[in-house]
Write a protein that binds this DNA or RNA. Structure first.
Length: 288
DNA sequence: AAGTCGGGGCT
DNA sequence: AGCCCAGACTT
């Protein structure tokens, strides 16, 4: 893993959350927001939204004072809109439990809404410089190949954390670089489909490359089709509510021509259950 | 351990 | 027409 340091210094992408100005302006809150947005949304899609979000709500306290409707609206088309509500809830929790300061302790971070193993450690490491293993889907693939000689990682588990922890340098700053470098390598070189092993700094020591890049038969659990799914219906309803906001949409005007009316109603009910929509006498709207 | 949850871009 | 994406939550 040692070659990653030099490679990262030379080749790392210039991303907003890696710039000193970003940390100076938004601190740990900026890192927290960026990591929320990056949960399953590609880097290139997050970038255009991040600055607008942080300019509007530059602190947890500002975010906590916003309405859920404004939060869902600002989240726009980033996907998985429950994350917007969780981010808002996390901001409230930061104000209530930590005086408005994003906590540094991993367990305190894990206790916040919408924060799991990845995000908690990403904040502790990239915002505060502490020494923890940060393992995302990119890192898991790099470890699977370079260390275990497999084509694809297995399902996420705590083993990944232990494996990465064992590879971290003793110095926290160097450990942070390795964490970021492993993610960067997986995102740009050691990609899922067509890895560029010819440009990989770990090529000499990679177990998978040494074995001739075998197909180790690790089936990735594939996602159901989006077309025709409940998720698509939810997305369509929410898009309608965003367009109408702050006005409510009469229930009879909510996707009247949707192919499957039971699916439509299921989508409405589940959005209400999630707190992403609200129904009253005037109809359906974003949550007040 | 398996299901659910967006949406866009690339192959 | 799939596959993939700086995951987390619920059951």
């Amino acid at each position: 893993m040692t070659p990653l340091h030099g490679w990262y210094a030379e080749e790392a992408r210039d991303l907003p959350w890696r710039r000193p100005e970003f940390h100076a302006a938004f601190g740990a809150w900026g890192v927290l927001v960026s990591e929320f947005m990056l949960q399953q949304t590609p880097v290139t899609r997050v970038i255009p939204h991040l600055d607008a979000w942080l300019t509007r709500w530059p602190t947890p306290r500002a975010m906590a004072a916003a309405s859920p409707a404004d939060v869902v609206q600002q989240w726009a088309n980033l996907g998985y809109p429950r994350r917007a509500l969780w981010l808002h809830r996390a901001a409230v929790e930061v104000v209530e439990r930590h005086g408005g300061v994003v906590p540094r302790d991993v367990d305190a971070l894990l206790a916040l809404s919408g924060i799991g193993d990845y995000t908690a450690r990403a904040v502790a490491v990239f915002a505060y410089g502490d020494r923890h293993p940060v393992v995302d889907t990119n890192t898991r693939r790099v470890l699977a190949r370079a260390v275990e000689g497999r084509a694809q990682p297995g399902s996420p588990s705590r083993r990944d954390l232990a494996l990465m922890a064992a590879l971290l340098p003793a110095d926290p700053a160097e450990a942070a670089v390795l964490n970021a470098a492993a993610m960067e390598l997986g995102a740009t070189i050691c990609t899922s489909r067509a890895p560029r092993c010819d440009r990989c700094p770990l090529a000499d020591g990679c177990a998978w490359l040494a074995a001739g890049r075998p197909d180790t038969g690790d089936e990735r659990r594939r996602q159901a089709a989006y077309e025709g799914s409940d998720r698509q219906a939810r997305g369509a309803v929410l898009r309608l509510l965003r367009a109408a906001a702050p006005a409510a949409v009469p229930l009879t005007a909510v996707l009247p021509d949707w192919p499957d009316v039971r699916q439509r109603d299921r989508a409405i009910d589940s959005l209400i259950a999630d707190g992403l929509a609200e129904a009253d006498g005037e109809g359906l709207s974003l949550p007040r």
